[in-house]
Every structure is written in structure tokens, then in C-alpha cells.
Nucleic acid binder design. Structure first.
Lengths: 148, 148
DNA sequence: TCGATATAATTAGGCAGCTAACTAAGTATC
DNA sequence: GATACTTAGTTAGCTGCCTAATTATATCGA
């Protein structure tokens, strides 16, 4: 980054690098074949206590396109992590639900992620995180609104 | 994000979302077929004043794998943006240089990116950026060191 | 000098994200 | 009720990123 670049550009650049580092740190500890995207789906069901969701609901929850979600869900179904059934109330839609294997996999991933997370908490000062959190949330809100 | 998640997790999640928003905002204004990755390569040459670099030098400058850089450079060469020649001093290596079209494209991209950048500076308070910059830099440094 | 090791780049295969274009099904309007 | 519009999902094709394995060239050491 040159000193002549706008500061906003530097901020976005740092953010990109941090995202890359975090994603790869997490991906490295996940079971072979599991990705952050797939874990996120598993986690979503358990955390929000949903029994079943439609692909479109999942896509908009994660702000990704429907084709991307179709693709991820297909992979997860092949791996036995979710079950996809037609929606009895709407012929256009489908219902996605976790399988027992999906629940187990989520627990396994959580356990594996605790390592990197602990490492972060050991190395990153708590006040740095505390200062970043609200400011990043604010920036995200602003950028979200700017899309219109 | 649940309230029970560690704050560090929230921070990384926000960072991922912001990265996605920024990348797509920039990609949207770039000329058809141009990507942020390709623009970054173009920009690298001009900003650092390099005449030519090897693919490996570029890969490590951006912290991406060599196969990824091979791929991006191949695309850029097909588009006429760079010229790739064997290194006369090392038979294993190659030299990548910008073409005139590459310079022109970089200027064009810069002009197009000024729109989103101006929008950001109009909507995001300067002090928010100023507060984020050093803290993100710090976090990035720490996470970079944690890889060892 | 020759064999072992290291480095540069590529190829093959895989996941995630996107847009564009398509099918099927529900809804609304005339 | 027939037509038009909207919504859910998929398919096709693209980019970017990755790891593993391969090829070719350098380099180092015995």
C-alpha cells in the first residue's frame, strides 16, 4: 500500500487480508472436505433452532446468490449432512433439514475451531477486539445501505 | 450472529461481510471481464515502478499461491494486458511486463473506481476510517505472525 | 562429475462466489 | 378461465482461490 492511497483503500485492503488469513486458518482445521461455507450452514440450523429452511431463506441469510446455495447444498446432501425434500405447501420450493450426520459434523467442527479461536484470544488483545467490533459493525451497516 | 459467540468471531464475521461488499462494489464498476485480482496486478507494476516481475514475485506480493497467479496471468496475457517472456538469466523463471494496453486498462480502472471510492468517502465518516486503519493493521500483523 | 535437493512454473481437480438464462409453479389481472 | 407476472430452483459458464502432483532447471555436496 502506497502512502498516496486514500485511507479508505488501506482499510479495505487490510480487511481483505485479514479475511483471507482467518478463512484459511479455519479451513485448515476443518475435516477434509468441509468448508467454512458448509459449516456456516450447519451452524445456522443449530444456532437458530430451525428444523427446516428453504434454499432461498438460507441464501438470503448469508447474502449469497441462490445458485451458490444450490451448489453448496447439493454438495452437503451428497455428503449426507442435510436432507432436501420438496415443500408440501409450495410446489416451487424445497425444505432443507440437518441429518444426524450433519449435527455430528457441526459438533466436530466446533471442537476443531476452538483451537484457532483460543489462539486468537491468546494473541489478540481483548481491547483491540472490543474497539474493532462496534466500528466494523458501523462500517458494515453503512456499506450495506450504500448498495441502494 | 448470536450474542453467545465470542466477540472475536463477530469481528471476523463483519470483516468477511465488508470484504464481500467492497469486492462486489468494485467489481461492478470495472470493465467487463476485468477483476479486482487483475487490476491489482496492473496497479502493482505502476505503483511500484517495476518494469518486470516474475510470477513468483507477484504471487508472494499478494500472498496467493503460485498456481493462482499462473492462472490470472494467463488470462491477462490472453487479454493482451501483460507480456510473459522467459527469463534470460534463469531458465526456470519468466518475466511478466505490462503492455501498453495494460497501462491503458489500469488508467481506465482507476477512473472507474473513483466513483465507489468517492461514495465511500461521502458516506463513511472520516474519523471512523481513521480509527479503523491502525487497529486493523495491528490485527493483521498479529494474525500474520500467528501463522508460524 | 553425479546424485540429491530446491525452486519456478504448470497441470489437474476441487470449492465458493457470481451472472445469465431457463423451467416449473404460484399469483394476479383481465 | 386464459394470459401475464413473479418467485423458487437449477443449469451453464465464468473468475478466484486452494492443494497435490508433475516437469524443468539450478544448485549444492560428496
Amino acid at each position: 500500500m502506497s502512502d498516496t492511497d486514500p485511507l479508505a483503500f488501506k482499510v479495505l485492503n487490510e480487511i481483505g487480508i485479514i479475511d483471507q488469513l482467518a478463512t484459511s486458518a479455519f479451513t485448515d482445521v476443518l475435516p477434509r472436505g468441509m468448508s467454512v461455507a458448509q459449516f456456516t450452514v450447519l451452524n445456522h440450523f443449530v444456532r437458530l433452532g430451525h428444523t427446516s429452511r428453504s434454499p432461498t431463506q438460507l441464501a438470503s441469510a448469508f447474502q449469497i446468490s441462490r445458485p451458490t446455495m444450490t451448489n453448496t447444498l447439493a454438495r452437503m446432501e451428497r455428503a449426507g449432512l442435510v436432507k432436501i425434500a420438496p415443500d408440501p405447501e409450495d410446489g416451487r420450493s424445497k425444505r432443507v433439514a440437518l441429518t444426524a450426520a450433519g449435527h455430528t459434523m457441526r459438533e466436530d467442527c466446533l471442537a476443531r475451531l476452538s483451537g484457532p479461536l483460543a489462539a486468537m484470544q491468546a494473541h489478540v488483545p481483548a481491547d483491540l477486539i472490543a474497539e474493532l467490533a462496534p466500528r466494523l459493525a458501523r462500517l458494515r451497516e453503512i456499506m450495506d445501505q450504500m448498495r441502494d
